[in-house]
Amino acid sequence: MSDPGISVVICAYTEDRWEDILAAVSSVRAQSYPALETLLVVDHNPALGERLERAYRTAEDVRVLPNSGPRGLSSGRNTGIATSRGEVIAFLDDDAVAERDWLRRFAEAYADPRVLAVGGRTEPVWASGRRPAWFPEEFDWVVGCTYRGLPPGRVRVRNVLGGNASFRRTAFEAAGGFATGIGRDGGHRPLGCEETELCIRLTRARPDGVLLIDDRAVIHHRVPRVRENFAYFRTRAFAEGLSKALVARSVGADKGLESERRYATRVLPAGVARGLRDALLGRPGGAGRAGAIVAGVLTAAGGFAVGSLRARRESYATAGTGDRTGGPHE
């Protein structure tokens, strides 16, 4: 099978990340497996769009375009998908940089025609220079990174993680795009899970398809100081619970929570035990990590309960008006 052409989509929304955006684009342009194009999708920020257009006016491999849908990451990604030319579309966060062989690892996996999506490993780059002693690796998803509990190597998974992921174009033709009612929308609450919902829909549409994570496809994701504190940790955990409730409503609890059950019953108890052991041995942060895991679970569960209640109320209201349009992606 011939090597696929890969379009890279980077969604940006604020000039506060100007240097990060430039670094992200530079990392794509330095790939050992060259991208077909880099699409910078700007989320309803004309000033940022104009500034990026000036910066890349003479670049033949970089295009800047506005989000053509409602505000939010899902719409931005959908805009990139619709505009891109590649057989494969890869997504990179605007505050991350990819290692040189990032796209090469993706391309290698697509040699198997059954493969519809490939994700990679996302490493945190802490603004303070080091991981906070209390911050458990099991919760690195809080800051958009690969967390302890994911299997190593190149393995099949239920879903890839959106900030470091790629999809074959035919995947979107089979399942549609990202749901605009689930992920981040520019508001204050850091919602997510739009890639989980998409991957579950994709598996249903293409049961023969394969979804992979290859931990050699590495990006480095910047974690600002404001996200290194416990207040953000709790806010993000609660928002994750809300998002999981939306996913469960959209695709059903069986698939929507399948991986989360294993994570909650195996990975997290082991993390608590490890933290308590470290505390007994006098190692820094052990008790804090164990406590953070317990707090994170309870907070996420609270978010899920609130989200589920809201979803039921909306379902009742929809049924009462005779509107049966279903989930947010339909």
Rank of each mutant, 00 (worst) to 15 (best):
Y263A: 00
M1W: 10
K255W: 13
L257V: 04
R114C: 06
I213V: 14
L103Y: 10
G327C: 13
S315E: 14
V157S: 09
P151N: 05
V25A: 05
V247P: 15
V247Y: 15
L211W: 04
I200D: 14
L298M: 03
V157R: 15
S250V: 03
R77K: 15
W141K: 01
R148F: 04
T58P: 01
S128L: 04
S259G: 02
L40N: 05
P224H: 04
T58S: 10
R29G: 02
F91T: 06
C193A: 14
H220S: 08
Q31E: 15
L242G: 01
L280M: 14
F238D: 00
A231V: 05
R168Q: 07
R85G: 13
T146K: 07
S26G: 09
A205Y: 10
P152E: 04
A111M: 07
P190G: 03
V41S: 07
I213C: 08
F106H: 15
V41I: 12
E99Y: 04
I200A: 12
A300D: 01
A239Y: 04
A35V: 05
S32V: 12
A295Q: 00
A109S: 11
E108W: 08
C11D: 02
A59G: 00
A290N: 09
A270M: 08
Y263C: 01
Y110C: 02
G86D: 11
A295K: 02
V118T: 13
G183H: 10
S250C: 02
R184H: 11
R29H: 03
A165D: 07
E314L: 13
E99P: 00
L161K: 10
S74I: 05
R222L: 05
L191H: 11
V64A: 03
L150G: 00
W126I: 01
R29E: 07
R71K: 14
G271C: 11
F230M: 04
P284C: 07
R121A: 11
A82L: 12
A30T: 12
A127K: 03
Y316S: 02
Y147D: 01
T83R: 14
P124S: 02
R266S: 05
R17P: 00
A264S: 08
R277S: 13
E194K: 08
D43Y: 05
R154C: 13
G187C: 01
D112M: 07
L150I: 04
L298N: 00
A311R: 14
A319R: 12
E197I: 04
A165T: 10
V155P: 06
A55V: 03
E123K: 05
R158S: 14
S7D: 05
D95C: 06
G187T: 11
P113C: 07
A47I: 10
L191P: 00
P132N: 08
A107M: 13
W126V: 00
D140R: 12
V118R: 10
V143C: 00
G302T: 00
W18H: 08
R249L: 10
V267T: 15
V157Y: 11
G129P: 03
L198I: 07
A117Q: 09
K244G: 01
R17D: 12
E195P: 14
T265Q: 09
S315Q: 11
G144P: 03
A248M: 13
A23T: 07
T318D: 15
G177T: 06
